[in-house]
Design a binder for these strands. Structure first.
Length: 688
RNA sequence: GGGGGUGUAGCUCAGUUGGUUAGAGCGCCAGCCUGUCACGUUGGAGGCCGCGGGUUCGAGUCCCGUCACCCUCGCCA
């Protein structure tokens, strides 16, 4: 546990570092490769025209393999471009649309790409050719071959062209500083139309974004948008950093099955029927949890996998039914070992992606501290508004609501919102009250601290006896607002957390580019199951209790803490892990507590119990939510923006129409009869 | 399952108190234009106002139902 001072220092250090975010700059592609390419792929021999590709093929406007002019040889002698750039070249192109610069003026080039825009000035035609690397202006002048001119005139948005030409300097005054390639243009000799395009539903280059439904239905078009390409590239970079990090630390990547067995705990499973055994079903993994533990028992020591996981639960802005975890497990470790390895990854990712220097170790808060100070187990630590406990004062007051909460073993807690008393109207405060009620509170007490430290508000007169101590406890000064909730501990947590989160965003109490990383540790082992009234695992049933809490397992399960740790980034759970139980006796005890009978435990987890009895090393691990990492590091608000082909809130794919009906024959083969008749019309073909 | 929002031209949106022929920008089609880069300019085409029902002399507008998408609560070990 860290002192508040340490935490605050960390926050400041991180947030005041340069937020330079190279993938979000206005000229991102220019900088992307800067680290891996030392020079700007200058032609050998100074500015001399290069000896290849062979000059002058007849212009052609239609594509067929037979008529396609030959491109540059695969491994030309005298290759003028460095190794790295050459890999992006191909038989069809010498360069991408993002890499030509004034020092290549005079070079003969082939570019391939999509028509972003055509500006036809009759005498001279400009075509912006776009690919994932950037945009290059292609010029077709009045002296171009007739076929080339015709092709340029015919070209429309999103056609795919191959252009042959010479890199030319732009006439004075016509350079475009907004474009990485804006210093040059390609003077076009021939155009090959590789594919025409029907008028697109929307323009990938347009500034106004179509609605999500249109984007998802035409996802291939949406993915052509530079912003989406940036997101996919960011994701790729983050995953590569992860893979490199664990590879360098000696981790082994092992794949685990997608077709597994349904387990009683946890989320709803996605099921796959068995053809060979009617009535039996596979379940898609909610996570590779058991497999990775068994890999430890098999002696693999340090395991890592980029694992697809499936949970059939309702969706949110940051939740998809299929998502990706970086799954990690280690043997002969304690929590600090796992935490250390992940902190190294956090530091590395922040540096390589954002250019931020994250001081280690990261701050750690216990679960209890989190709930007391922030009301939530994944608090946003980019801003203050900490919760203050007022229960003892409230018990001394004459206010019935406060006394009532105290007498029924509840709590009275509040937050101080600095310097908003004048700004917040009665209507604003009604809205905040509604927010608190929505979160389960019976009401919200608001008090404005006026000049001289006098409280104002509907119930201020009930609190005169404790007015001064209340003000001192909250630290309120004139102009501040106090929001107080009296209820059970859980309800005060939820209501005040919701208010805190909302006010933090509304009042812009933090820099939206700031990043704050922290650990939350010492979670309770169990929580009361609201439905059955029994105990449920807070994390999962394989979590080890703290060694000191072992006896509590039987005497006082509620007080028993787990060796669990969550990585929290900006108020979002970015990863979670535990040290696992590695002996069958403890495991069986926990199963029993969770209401899993010995028979059911044998039936469902027999293999685990057997393995735990046959040489299981102490082990533990963590899983990081890759989709969330990409969202957080990219400053994105929707998980659908970091997944190439995401699902809607009803878990359907608007592009393919999945899920869809199947042939009766298929159902018969699987021994399945459907209760409700399937929808008559497939979604993908609807409206056409 | 509950609460909220949205749905009008290919796209983004406006549409008054219920009123006669539903608009704009972009895109599309055609013409003009040799330095643009969100090119400019002239003209044109394009509408099941999500769908179904109701109220009304009259509905894009009001009411009921329904569908889709989004946000959210429950749910997500």
């Amino acid at each position: 546990m860290k002192s508040p001072n340490t935490r605050a220092t960390n926050t400041r250090t991180i947030t005041t570092s340069s937020p330079a975010c190279c993938f979000r700059n206005s000229a991102p592609r220019a900088t992307r490769w800067a680290s891996s390419s030392n020079s700007n792929s200058a032609p050998t021999g100074g500015g001399r025209p290069t000896p290849w590709p062979p000059p002058a093929w007849p212009a052609s406007v239609s594509f067929s393999p037979a008529t396609l002019p030959p491109g540059p040889p695969d491994q030309p002698a005298n290759h003028p471009y460095e190794e790295h750039e050459r890999r992006k070249a191909s038989v069809l192109r010498t360069h991408t649309c993002g890499e030509l610069r004034p020092d290549q003026i005079g070079a003969e080039v082939f570019l391939c790409g999509w028509v972003d825009r055509v500006r036809d000035h009759k005498g001279v035609i400009f075509i912006d050719l776009r690919d994932r690397w950037g945009r290059t202006q292609v010029v077709v002048g009045p002296d171009a071959a007739a076929e080339t001119l015709a092709a340029a005139r015919a070209a429309r948005a999103e056609w795919v062209l191959r252009v042959q030409g010479t890199v030319g300097a732009r006439p004075e005054g016509t350079t475009n500083p907004k474009l990485a390639t804006g210093g040059i243009e390609v003077v076009c000799r021939t155009i090959t139309v590789l594919n025409e395009a029907e008028t697109p539903v929307f323009q990938p280059g347009s500034t106004d974004l179509p609605g999500e439904e249109v984007r998802l239905t035409n996802r291939w078009l949406d993915l052509r948008r530079p912003a989406m390409q940036e997101n996919m590239f960011l994701r790729s970079r983050i995953v590569k950093i992860m893979r490199d990090h664990f590879d360098e630390l000696g981790f082994i990547d092992v794949e685990t099955p997608m077709l597994g067995r349904s387990t009683p705990e946890g989320a709803r499973d996605y099921l796959v029927p068995s053809r060979l055994e009617h009535g039996s079903f596979f379940a898609l993994p909610q996570s590779p949890q058991l497999y990775k533990q068994l890999l430890m028992m098999a002696g693999f020591d340090r395991y890592v996998q980029v694992a697809k996981c499936f949970r059939d639960e309702d969706l949110r802005a940051d939740r998809q039914p299929e998502f990706t975890q970086l799954d990690v497990e280690m043997s002969f470790v304690e929590a600090d070992d796992v935490i250390g390895v992940i902190e190294g990854l956090v530091r590395r990712t922040a540096r390589e992606i954002l250019g931020l220097d994250v001081p280690l170790p990261l701050p750690r808060l216990t679960w209890d501290e989190c709930m007391e100070r922030f009301g939530h187990d994944a608090p946003d630590l980019r801003f203050g508004l900490e919760i203050v406990d007022l229960t003892d004062l409230a018990g001394e007051s004459d206010f019935r609501v406060f006394r009532g909460a105290v007498e029924s073993a509840g709590r009275v807690r509040g937050i101080r919102v600095p310097a908003v008393a004048e700004r917040f109207s009665r209507k604003d405060l009604d809205t905040l009250t509604a927010v608190a009620v929505e979160a389960g509170a019976k009401g919200l007490v608001w008090l404005k601290c006026e000049s001289g430290g006098v409280w104002a508000g509907p119930v201020a007169k009930n609190l005169t006896s404790i007015a001064d101590t209340l003000r001192a406890r909250l630290g309120c000064e004139p102009g501040d607002l106090a929001l107080i909730v009296a209820d059970s501990f859980e309800v005060t947590c939820k209501a005040l957390h919701t208010l805190r989160k909302r006010l933090g965003a509304e009042l812009a109490l933090y820099d939206p580019k700031a990043m704050h990383f922290s650990w939350v540790v010492d979670f309770p082992m169990f929580a009361r199951d609201t439905e059955s009234g029994g105990w449920a695992s807070m994390h999962h049933p394989f979590t080890a209790p703290r060694p000191a809490d072992l006896e509590l397992l039987e005497s006082d399960p509620a007080a028993c803490r787990a060796v669990a740790y969550d990585l929290v980034i900006n108020g979002s759970e970015a990863g979670g892990g535990t040290i696992r139980i590695h002996d069958s006796a403890t495991q069986e005890k926990v199963f029993k507590l969770l209401g899993i009978s010995t028979e059911m435990a044998r039936e469902r987890f027999g293999f685990l119990l057997d393995a735990l009895r046959s040489g299981a090393p102490p082990h533990g691990g963590i899983a990081l939510g890759i989709d969330r990492w990409v969202m957080l590091f990219g400053g994105l608000e929707s998980i659908r923006d970091v997944i190439a082909f995401p699902k809607t809130q009803k878990a359907s794919d608007l592009m393919t129409g999945a899920p869809g009906p199947v042939e009766t024959k298929q159902l018969v083969e699987l021994g399945i009869r459907v209760l409700a008749p399937p929808k008559p019309v497939g979604r993908a073909s609807e409206g056409d």
